[in-house]
Design a binder for these strands. Structure first.
Lengths: 203, 203
DNA sequence: GATTTCAAATACAGATGTGTATTTGTATTC
DNA sequence: GAATACAAATACACATCTGTATTTGAAATC
């Protein structure tokens, strides 16, 4: 099996990583508040000792989780933008990316959880707000880029449109999860693209 | 002061009502999972005994809370529809109503909380789903009614548009709360109405 | 290879919650 | 006004989580 003998630092990093992964799963499943430090540690195969030796608190770990997720998304989008594909192909890639990011895994649940938590914890709100701003600006950047490429003028400030876009996507997903099968994925996609193209290309 | 001497039933109803009101406040403030039965009872000025004598569980009370809220909204909208105002005035009333319902109080937080909870509790999801369906249909009914009055044809099934409308409003509000002051209420309003009129009147 | 260091486990002391069973006091019934 | 009924309080037994303090065993250092 060639199980490599790990150095202290490698081992520590592995533990951190496993704790983060476990936290993502458990928090998405049970919710942030209902998830105990014990849950996270146990699901990762450790005890609470390992947790407190790696993170200051559950909130701290959670922020780190969100940062990782945000970085992953940003990287994914940047790669598409840098890919120098045609506009059509880029759009396809983008659509595919969003389907994966928003429907495939549970990261969107974590962000919903985070936004609710932010309402109750001022410190957390500050930190989350910064992340969301980055997200919005990233989204705005893409919107501008695309509209530029397509020779369209924007009907509103890009940052506002980015805000609306994120809100709509998240909102649809959020509603859809709580009333499953009412709006099949395909119709949801249609609805989203109808609203988007109406918004962006109506003028 | 003429504090009326209450009958047993009146007293019981009062307790129920107070528990519901207290629950709305506490759950909006701390979140459903973080709110204990104790919290609710105490905030209403009772002990847990009173709670368990009136509700089977926290979830049960929560569903009732949502039902009440839904009924209130429905009634409000129905009154506007029945008011026989001009279309313009109706629109104004409607806008005012939404501002009040979605920005004024905390009911929207409860629904967000509910949707997250629904992901984790199948029984609850079933019950919530029914409520959300009612909400969506109510919204669809209004959309049809209005478009009828304005002589417009809908670009998509009313129920889908209703879904999108609710998702967008909720999404914007949700984002806005977690990154306050980024999108002032007024700009949010503008953005919303821009997206709506684009969607509904583009074709 | 003995010594030191540190990641993770374990032990501890306390807080808070749960749901049920029982009690209490006031309205209702006779 | 005594008996009854029931809303709400209290008592109980137990479960779970928290954060810190201490211990342990394996890597790093010499």
């Amino acid at each position: 099996m060639a199980r490599k003998r790990l150095t202290r630092e490698e081992s520590r990093d592995q533990t951190r990583q496993r704790l983060l992964e476990a936290a993502a799963v458990v928090i998405a499943k049970k919710g942030l508040a209902a998830t105990s430090v014990e849950d996270i540690a146990a699901h990762a195969g450790y005890t609470r000792g390992a947790f407190y030796s790696n993170f200051k608190s559950k909130t701290d770990l959670f922020i780190e989780l969100l940062k990782h997720d945000h970085a992953d998304i940003q990287q994914g989008l940047q790669e598409i933008l840098d890919s120098k594909l045609s506009i059509g192909d880029m759009q396809k890639q983008l659509a595919k990316f969003y389907v994966q990011a928003y429907c495939g895994d549970n990261s969107y649940v974590l962000w919903a959880e985070a936004r609710l938590h932010a309402m109750r914890d001022a410190r957390f709100r500050t930190r989350l707000s910064a992340l969301l701003l980055e997200k919005r600006d990233m989204c705005a950047y893409f919107i501008e880029k695309f509209c530029d490429l397509m020779g369209k003028t924007l009907p509103a400030p890009a940052s506002d449109l980015a805000f609306g876009t994120m809100a709509l996507i998240d909102g649809v997903r959020f509603f859809n999860d709580s009333m499953p099968n009412e709006l099949p994925d395909q119709r949801a996609q249609q609805l989203l693209s109808a609203m988007f193209s109406a918004t962006f290309f109506s003028s």
